[in-house]
Design a protein around this nucleic acid. Structure first.
Lengths: 197, 197
DNA sequence: TGCATAATTTGACGTGCGTCAAACTTCTTT
DNA sequence: AAAGAAGTTTGACGCACGTCAAATTATGCA
């Protein structure tokens, strides 16, 4: 099976996940709209300050979202792996400039659809509308979890908690980014892991 | 003009805000679905751990959302004033237990609609679907702002930033809750405000 | 108007974690 | 296989802020 066919299957699985079984007719139209793209490690997929013109979903690879604060420090706000949406969700819906940038941490393959096509498609098949609500709902819950995580005061507890939620993270993401995600210094995370804190 | 009529106007203004102008026919159906409710200071509007059965929007008053962490400490995650939605958004869509509780900080009047009626209505008038997406989008952006706020390390900066975003908060909400919202001790907030930090 | 309760302030003390700096280790690339 | 870059660890030092405790001020209710 070719890589493209493979990706196609993934894309279909996606849509089914969010909106249920898909009809032949719907599938054909959808296929006219979605596109595939590949990124190298380090490539920017969305840039903060811009209004996102598309919605992307990770097929393979890992994406990191972050923003730069006043002091110029990078703040990681999320990781996006296989089968997860990776785009500035709120901004996509509200048409406002995105607060975060999205960058490929490894070679990444995505399915994407332009906003225009996205809404065009929704107009044709209104029943798909619930799909976007689900995507947004998931993002909301994820965001809430992260906020909750950040409120835990001790670094040790923050890290332990994250391990509980996403143990695989540690094997896949450089510690710098995990530290940034947890809102602590890299050195602190290192000491926590060594059991020195 | 009676208070109920007043509330009705507000409710209509709401819907228009999220979905544009509303037709006579749509309005009539909508009116059959929405309800009004009043809460006393301290009343629980949504309880964490439960799947929200309705969506509420504040007409007058102020609502606070919070969750209790492992140590039993209250963590304020949001304030909801006039013309704002106040319900566990992500959980409403995803049908999962809510992480946060919602409580009236003052006497509160809300419009609310059950999930069942909500989706019933959407089925009849699909064009309203975009409304929920907008509500969710707004919540997402608000949540992102809060997370960003929480990442700022110095208490002084966190407070200054909040003042910039929502100056009116201070005149309306007890400092305890603002401190909790900002993730700092009440005493620290007090010192920050006194210019001693 | 006065009392009870809630809200805010002030003080003293200890420590978790950030910062800077340097060593060590593991991946890339040729 | 070697050289360079990227990632991680370790040490030393200081202070912002949490915690406990008690005083002071504001608020609601009889």
């Amino acid at each position: 099976m070719s890589s493209t066919e493979n990706h196609l299957q993934t894309a279909i699985a996606y849509v089914s996940k969010y909106i249920g079984n898909i009809q032949e007719e719907e599938l054909e139209l959808l296929l006219q709209f979605i596109r595939f793209a590949n990124y190298q490690k380090g490539d920017l997929i969305y840039r903060h300050g811009e209004i996102p013109k598309s919605a992307s979903f990770v097929i393979t690879g890992a994406v990191r979202s972050y923003y730069i604060d006043e002091e110029g420090k990078e703040n990681t706000v999320g990781f996006h792996f296989e089968n997860e949406p990776a785009f500035p969700y709120g901004s996509f819906v509200e048409l406002v400039p995105a607060a975060a940038s999205f960058v490929a941490m490894e070679p990444v393959a995505v399915v994407w659809i332009t906003r225009h096509d996205f809404y065009q498609f929704l107009e044709t098949f209104p029943r798909f509308e619930t799909g976007i609500a689900k995507v947004l709902g998931e993002y909301l819950i994820k965001g809430g979890q992260h906020l909750k995580l950040m409120r835990i005061d001790s670094s040790r507890e923050r890290y332990k908690k994250l391990l509980g939620i996403q143990p695989e993270l540690v094997n896949r993401v450089p510690l710098t980014y995990i530290a940034s995600y947890l809102g602590m210094a890299l050195e602190t995370l290192s000491r926590v892991r060594a059991g020195k804190l």
